[in-house]
Design a protein around this nucleic acid. Structure first.
Ligand SMILES: [Mn+2]
Ligand SMILES: [Mn+2]
Ligand SMILES: [Mn+2]
Ligand SMILES: [Mn+2]
Lengths: 220, 220
DNA sequence: TAAAAAATTTAGACTAACCTAAAAATATAT
DNA sequence: ATATATTTTTAGGTTAGTCTAAATTTTTTA
């Protein structure tokens, strides 16, 4: 049988909160992420366990089964491919696409996803730098640094963001920090950990710790 | 407030069954079209009337209000634009797109629709020859003939289909009858009203009444 | 125009996904 | 090691959208 819109969202969120090492996700964390109450989460967990999509023992938190992981990754694939479509083909900004992709990711049809993927030229990353799982369900997270881990004098490439909030992305737009930009850390303020960063060999900007913590970068 | 997926479907179906002259639609007709039971339809009609989307008096059938008509036409616009996208951009056949568009038509976001429309080059017709309402909600049904109304010797242009079933569309594909094809009626069989029709000045085909009744054409 | 047939609505129930309040289990702190 | 605090589950309800069966209204037929 098919999974509902809601079930797919739970699986996707469990995947995200469970992280690379597949750690147990708590009921409260899910309530927070789904904007529901803990009691509602418990109901849904019983159902997902029933369907063999999660490992669930009362009071012990949950992880995805292989079957649940497969579903989650399919949803993530669709979400990210649709985001590429919205930005590359329809001309949306990277700050505008998340909510729409949140709906599109639940459209069924395997063949739609594969045709969309081909139409987009089999992209490997979405507009936020997140990797797109392949058709077989392989998802490899590149191991990027966070800008706070970069030392003074280093030049790095901007590869992605941790925060996907429109307000954050718009802030980056105004600062000229886009995917692929070269960031050179020139100074780090001892007191508040804010940094002076040179963008693409051009202007130097002051970047707060709050921003640095959400920038994924790569040494060249 | 937003209309649900289900409410949108009811409005779209009432629009279709109500026709150009806005005739009353019966409960049973809606039950048939929505694949539900009459009792369920009655419940929904009370709700839609409550929201001011339909004119409804018990036992008297329903029509759309202006407000309901507006919603219905927006859904139809989205459905047909997505069908164009699926055929023109993703390479689906016209027989494959209806069910997928049935889902995509409920994705909210005005701006998405308008960007999609621009991306597609503001198409006027969908892959089945159905007119696409404009952004303001104007929908003008061209007045086509049905092939059964065409006399022997006349040449007409194939402009659309009444039946959207995949099996019918695939049958047309196998017969070489596509949108824009020139059909010349050469003979009409007295007994079963089947016709000999020459396609694009090339091969002549026998077409059953069942098929003729579902072909929309235009004199040149 | 009254009886029969058909269409429609009402009554009462079900499921999915949510809720609040209370109970139970686990974790933390003295 | 208890007592307290926190987390999670259970119990009991709600709403949207569906159902079946029964009642009611409208239409058709004789
Ligand atoms: Mn996103
Ligand atoms: Mn993204
Ligand atoms: Mn269609
Ligand atoms: Mn169509």
């Amino acid at each position: 049988m098919q999974n509902s819109f809601t079930e797919e969202n739970y699986l996707k969120i469990i995947h995200a909160l469970s992280g690379r090492d597949g750690v147990e996700v708590t009921t409260n964390a899910l309530a927070e992420s789904t904007s529901t109450r803990a009691a509602s989460v418990t109901d849904m967990l019983r159902k997902l366990a029933e369907k063999g999509l999660i490992h669930y023992k009362k009071y012990q938190g949950v992880t995805l089964t292989d079957s649940g992981e497969k579903v989650a990754i399919k949803v993530i694939r669709k979400h990210r491919l649709w985001e590429v479509f919205l930005v590359e083909k329809l001309g949306f900004g990277w700050d505008e696409v998340h909510d729409i992709a949140e709906e599109l990711e639940h459209i069924p049809s395997e063949v739609l996803v594969e045709k969309l993927d081909a139409f987009l030229g089999h992209p490997k990353f979405d507009p936020h730098g997140d990797p797109i799982p392949d058709a077989k369900g392989n998802l490899t997270e590149p191991d990027y640094l966070i800008l706070t881990d970069v030392h003074i004098g280093e030049k790095v490439l901007m590869m992605g963001v941790l925060d996907h909030a429109p307000s954050f992305l718009q802030h980056l737009d105004r600062s000229g920090i886009t995917l692929g930009a070269v960031l050179e850390v020139q100074e780090i303020n001892e007191y508040d950990k804010s940094a002076s960063v040179r963008i693409n060999g051009g202007p130097t900007l002051f970047i707060s710790l709050e921003v640095s913590k959400n920038l994924l970068v790569q040494r060249r």
